[in-house]
């Protein structure tokens, strides 16, 4: 795969859920591509199908129809184990609820994807340390999630997503459980990773000021992509600036 080829290429993706005799079309023919080094925000109201789209992009689920090439590999028809393999090799997840293993140190949480890869424990440790340092938590290796603030937990989650060197980082409402100041911290890290390391990021959010930090904005509505625009001047996330305006934007 060359950099010119899209990391994500979805063509005519459909997803139908069946509840008893009722069919529900969550996605009705979506074409969606993400190029290498893109920072895409995916927005849309709840029930629009954006969660379904994200589950498909993240190989957590399989489309009912259509073709999905992830980093050049057709992943649309893979079984559960093969999708696990694809997630492990190609995708890094950051979730709204952090989803760290409780009572497990930050270091071990970050090591987890590598453990399922069969990486040696020494190399796992080194890479996990490196990833935690990258998100500014080099001094919190032994802390368990309950000993970390929400923002720190989300940074551990980002480190866990980065440690495998994924083709895409998939962030699903990563600031949804955070106050505005820590949200800015997380967004700042994502922007930095995008800028400095050329990381491809797909960020799902329903908040406009979060979406504004991306360089491209996609809106999903009624199972279709309603708009797909370049963001001319992405907002630069800044926790310090946010602190001043928190009276205005804190409630979001």
């Amino acid at each position: 795969m060359t950099d010119a080829e899209p990391v994500i290429r979805m063509e005519g993706i459909e997803k139908v859920y069946r509840t008893g005799d009722v069919l529900f079309h969550a996605l009705r023919g979506v074409d969606f591509s993400v190029n290498h080094g893109d920072f895409v925000a995916v927005g849309g109201p709840s029930g629009s199908g954006k969660s379904t789209l994200m589950n498909l992009v993240g190989c957590l689920d399989r489309p009912s129809a259509g073709r999905y090439l992830l980093a050049g590999h057709d992943v649309s028809m893979l079984d559960a184990d093969a999708r696990s393999f694809a997630r492990n090799r190609l995708i890094g997840f950051v979730f709204q609820g952090f989803n760290l293993l409780a009572r497990t140190s930050a270091l071990e949480n970050v090591e987890l994807p590598l453990a399922y890869r069969g990486t040696s424990s020494r190399e796992r440790r080194d890479r996990a340390r490196e990833a935690l340092a990258l998100v500014g938590l080099g001094d919190k290796l032994a802390n368990t999630p309950s000993q970390l603030s929400g923002g720190q937990q989300q940074r551990v989650a980002i480190a866990r997503a980065l440690v495998t060197d994924p083709k895409v980082l998939l962030a699903d409402e990563p600031t949804g459980n955070l106050d505005s100041r820590t949200s800015e911290e997380v967004l700042e890290i994502l922007q930095r990773l995008h800028r400095e390391r050329g990381l491809t990021i797909v960020l799902v959010t329903h908040e406009a000021d979060v979406a504004a930090c991306a360089s491209r904005s996609v809106i999903v509505r009624d199972g279709r992509i309603a708009s797909d625009t370049r963001v001319a001047n992405p907002r630069v996330a800044s926790p310090s600036a946010m602190a001043e305006s928190s009276a205005a934007g804190g409630g979001a």
Binding site: G58, L60, A80, D81, S84, F85, R87, N88, R89, F93, F95, N99, L100, L101, L112, P113, Y116, R117, R160, T164
Partner: peptide, 10 residues
Amino acid sequence: GIRMAVGARS
């Protein structure tokens, strides 16, 4: 779920 998301197979 977390383990599966980061690559644990069944």
